[in-house]
Design a protein around this nucleic acid. Structure first.
Lengths: 149, 149
DNA sequence: TTGCGGTCTCCCATCATGGGAAGGTCAAGT
DNA sequence: ACTTGACCTTCCCATGATGGGAGACCGCAA
């Protein structure tokens, strides 16, 4: 299997397959004599694991930890669970931040009639007082969402 | 007012004040003879506007648009409102993605007893079938949250 | 053999943010 | 007046996950 086929089989782009290898998340693929990467069943299974964890919003470092646990026959399920729960807590915190932002902006927009005239409480609020009681973000991940675009 | 004072007054770091100037989000600050940036009342007001929009999760490009509208006496409030609503829709989509992830992982964790033994459905699910019916993310912003760390 | 599509490596860009180095400035205290 | 320390300046680099593209090579089919 060449890298393109592996990409199709795992839903991970060719670029990312090379990147995951480069940063050591997955073991370097075997190579043909001429340098092409060759993927076997095991590689594909690992990559699918990675892809699914990624889809669940795990960061690469967390995925690396999950992979270690996955391969470790003697792991305790408590280890896995705590990692998962920590991630859930993280996601939930982000969700709360989103909720606050949505509520604050929604409130402002609600009070804006939206007609042709210029008076709009969205801008005046942003320009003067606190725009709503949106808690100052904890330094980590301000709003986040590295718009991958 | 020097840049450090401006940072304290606006809650925006010194680094970011310079960055916002560099990318043209705000007009270059006046300088003293020796090159220090000097901020006046208007500058601070503008920067506070920027900071609050940022706290509401607007991206820099959107903040630039909001600033234009803020300064444009002849704007229509409809323009502002549609920008705000588009942003809300964006945030809501991200929230839905988070919700899906939270539900999926929470479900997996719930079925994991968490004891000393290695059997854990979290890993086996990630390793085999679809980890849950988490919709494949739309290419934009996979999970996002550029962990600013 | 030619041609096309896949692959290789390398470098660059994103977005918002911070770190740090090397050097200039300013105000307060001696 | 001089030192000291806090502040400011610019410049470069790093982050995380991803994509784009250039220039060169490989492999297979017509």
């Amino acid at each position: 299997m060449n890298i393109g086929d592996a990409a199709k089989a795992t839903g991970i782009s060719v670029k990312m397959l090379r990147y995951y290898e480069e940063i050591g998340l997955v073991r370097p693929a075997n190579r043909t004599y001429s340098g092409y990467r060759v993927y076997g069943e095991k590689d594909i299974a690992t990559l699918r694991f990675v892809g699914r964890a990624r889809d669940l919003g795990f960061q690469v470092k967390q995925i690396a930890a999950l992979l270690d646990l996955w391969r470790d026959q003697s792991r305790s399920s408590a280890d896995v669970k705590s990692l998962a729960l920590a991630h859930v807590a993280d996601l939930e915190q982000r969700r709360r931040q989103l909720d606050e932002m949505i509520a604050a902006i929604g409130h402002l927009a609600h009070n804006c009639h939206g007609g042709d005239r210029p008076d709009c409480p969205i801008l005046t609020t942003l320009g003067s007082e606190s725009p709503a009681k949106v808690a100052r973000m904890p330094k980590r991940a301000r709003t986040g969402f590295a718009a991958v675009a």
